[in-house]
Design a protein around this nucleic acid. Structure first.
Lengths: 127, 127
DNA sequence: TTCATTGTTAGCCATAAAGCTAACTATAGA
DNA sequence: TCTATAGTTAGCTTTATGGCTAACAATGAA
């Protein structure tokens, strides 16, 4: 998957726009037509459609047309890529921090005093 | 913070670029100078500096200059914003999914069998 | 058949993003 | 002091993004 990275690019880029995040949030409540989605936004339809298209390219949204109505729905699996990337980085960071803390502890024990390091982020397991 | 949304924009936008994600990954291993960071990339320094700047604006990276060396380090707290947004959306999605499943279960129980066509649009209660 | 609804296509514009070179500043070291 | 190192600033190009209008399907309803 040489394009895997590219896909991450697209997902993060898609989420970098507030209009598109709002669309994603709306779609969390269930599928909707383009018109329903566009309604709350003060934006010409063609402009709005571009956002839908960006979301589809990123894989975050899927749509299909029945009659003259195009219905969109979320593909939350696509978000997992981004989520995983972030969690992975945090894991690496925290591992490093642990090593560093251990090192400081060792110094403490050896020398008798040392300043605590950086604030840890509480782990919020998906459980 | 009216700019909270804007900050999310910046974080996702910052992470939408593979060079910048690579920088973040590198910084997970510990702080580094601009030169060290730039080394692996086949890119003119001024171009590279722009990426650093984008990362700083997003809050993901912090840097300070000592002598002629600018040292960069990660501010992983900044990533939390993005992580939380994603997890929140997934939570909402999953809650909805649960409701839908419960609804299907109810139908199943009541009717003996049912093939509900599409997930419902938001309406009060699973009527 | 006619008409309103719902998207879609095409094309335009302004701004931002991502890259470059060239020239400059500021320090560290010889 | 002179020179090499490490960034920085300025200014340019190309391409992408996000918005618009106008005109065109295509479908469902009257």
């Amino acid at each position: 998957m040489a394009n895997n990275e590219t896909q991450l690019d697209r997902i993060f880029a898609a989420l970098a726009d507030p209009t598109r995040r709002a669309i994603v949030m709306r779609l969390c409540d269930g599928e909707a037509s383009v018109g329903e989605l566009a309604n709350p936004f003060d934006m010409a339809l063609p402009s709005f459609m571009k956002h839908i298209h960006v979301l589809e390219l990123s894989g975050l949204v899927q749509s299909e047309k029945a009659g003259r109505v195009r219905t969109c729905r979320l593909r939350p699996e696509a978000m997992v890529g981004a989520e995983d990337w972030l969690q992975h980085q945090r894991a690496i960071w925290e591992a490093r921090l642990d090593r560093f803390e251990a090192y400081v502890m060792k110094l403490k024990k050896e020398k008798g005093e040392a300043k605590p390091v950086a604030p840890r982020r509480k782990k919020k397991g998906p459980a």
